[in-house]
Design a protein around this nucleic acid. Sequence first.
DNA 1: CTGAAAGCGCTTACAG
DNA 2: CTGAAAGCGCTTACAG
Lengths: 348, 348
Amino acid sequence: MNLRVTIKKIADVAKVSRGTVDKVLNNRPGVSDEVRKRVMEIIDALEYKPNIIGKALANQKKPSLIGMIIPSDANPFFNDIRKGVEAAYQELSDFGVKIDCRVMNSLDVEEQLSIIKYLSDQGISALALTAIDNPAICNAINTLVAQNIPVVTFNSDITGSKRMCFIGQDLVKSGRVAGELLGKILQGKGQIAVITGSHHILAHNQRVDGFKMVINKDFPGIEIVDTIENLDQDALSFELTWALLEKFPNLNGIFIAAGGISGAGKAVKLAGKGNAIKMICTDFIPNTIELVKEGVIDFAIGQDPFTQGYQLVKILYDCLFLGRGPEKEFFYTKIDIRIKENIESNLI
Amino acid sequence: MNLRVTIKKIADVAKVSRGTVDKVLNNRPGVSDEVRKRVMEIIDALEYKPNIIGKALANQKKPSLIGMIIPSDANPFFNDIRKGVEAAYQELSDFGVKIDCRVMNSLDVEEQLSIIKYLSDQGISALALTAIDNPAICNAINTLVAQNIPVVTFNSDITGSKRMCFIGQDLVKSGRVAGELLGKILQGKGQIAVITGSHHILAHNQRVDGFKMVINKDFPGIEIVDTIENLDQDALSFELTWALLEKFPNLNGIFIAAGGISGAGKAVKLAGKGNAIKMICTDFIPNTIELVKEGVIDFAIGQDPFTQGYQLVKILYDCLFLGRGPEKEFFYTKIDIRIKENIESNLI
DNA sequence: CTGAAAGCGCTTACAG
DNA sequence: CTGAAAGCGCTTACAG
């Protein structure tokens, strides 16, 4: 009882060759309207579903290249994204997928543009990038899309482009979660401060906004006394945090929305307030993990970078081989809450 | 520049047929020792790696059946496990994988044994089950393994069997995480109680043990005043919790290690202590989600059931098609901490 | 023991 | 426009 419907079956029923069926299935030219229509009907009637394995085997002759651009700014956590990409690549390499991953040396628009051009010249079939939110980049993306090269953004999105989808964190929500956590462990009372990277970076602002929304709405007994900018730099972060502690001796909570976590942690420890001040931060880099283990940082909120890398490859693969776009525009990865007891889990 | 090493290439170099190479590769009989050795050497020298797609296409003729047994006791959260299985199945169905999933009507050893026998008679190539921890089940598993049918356990493990690996939660650690969370939001002070399902169920005991370890060690200011058994029943859970609240009027924390969460929550609400008592529980079933949204339960700790289902299929597939066992014995899924702000996320 | 051939499902030149 | 054939990499009867 072989109920599988194959191209051969369609061809037999329609009394045409398999090549012709293939043309109809994939909207290739070279079939008369009449035959196309007849074959079409049979395909529908028999509920034909293409077999991926067959497609993939035939595709071995012309492997497809996925281009990828990740920022240099190299939050070490981009390594976890690469691990996810690597895992997906292992699963899919036999399908004839190759990946060319380029790391930026700067955060320059010019550099990103030139990498996009380079990859385009290499003949990529798809592109994944942590986009710089700039009109020129937007144009470059749209040009690729116009050439039928799907583009996805990950980790950081670009507004108004024709990129297919975004894979990353719901930043506002991650800020909200931070707000609720800090509110809870302070039992709704006290003075807190926010440390952000830069007011010019959308991601940072979104986290801070989410955080403030929840504190202001759900924890009226908590006062946000200050919001400082550390430009993601540890040295500056240390200095500013130190000053903050002097200015507000009763401070009992800090939310760090971006980088410079190590610097802030050092200041808090040096002031002997590791226990008195509850701290919440984002992402799991080695310095952060250390501070969580020491008990200086109470909660670290991750964005599941592994899944970001893994899914971007999977989504692009689905698009290239199965010809189907993703079923939604935003793929939000887990808001991954960690504390001392599970900061270092080795999981699947 | 086709640098791919295929069976054809090996055959050409070794001056034998591809069929012979296939026999050598898969340790099939019918090759002289001399030829086998020579071919072997060439395979090694050329670093041949089998192409999954080729294998899979050839395998279409004889699809393999994965048997699966899940408990009836139907924590609704088993639905999420099934969703994971379904997702993996979608990805792999073209590889010729079929899954026969059986749901138990009881927690009887006899029933599980008879289902194992049934599946075995169906000619399954692999088995995944939430095992009852009993010697007869252990024997049945070992019999399958002896027939070269790999077995994995998920969600609940069985001691001493030859099952290949276990996929599920690190229960002790999940209890530890619960302990740290409750300790944190109580700021290390107060009287708390533990509600467990049954002292006879390993999983429950492990969670409770982990929880108590952390409270006793890291939070000396917190006293565990009682540990009660609700047999996973909501009615009983309500009664016992109600009595608990009367007996300990100063109680400010409860950890529920198993089911009966809704009953306990109702008692706490009815006593008007929804805010005064901090509650932590496990797994995300609709009732729990509701209580978290209401603010009665402060933290819910999940075990990523989707991944349990997804990975069990993937691991078995790797084993069947790629002939490679898993690289570790225990696959622990995420300890997924949720609060009001992210209890209902729709993520990947 | 060994090899030649057919087949898994799809795609791609190439003839006609 | 249409079809017959070869090929992607591996496996499986079947002859010899």
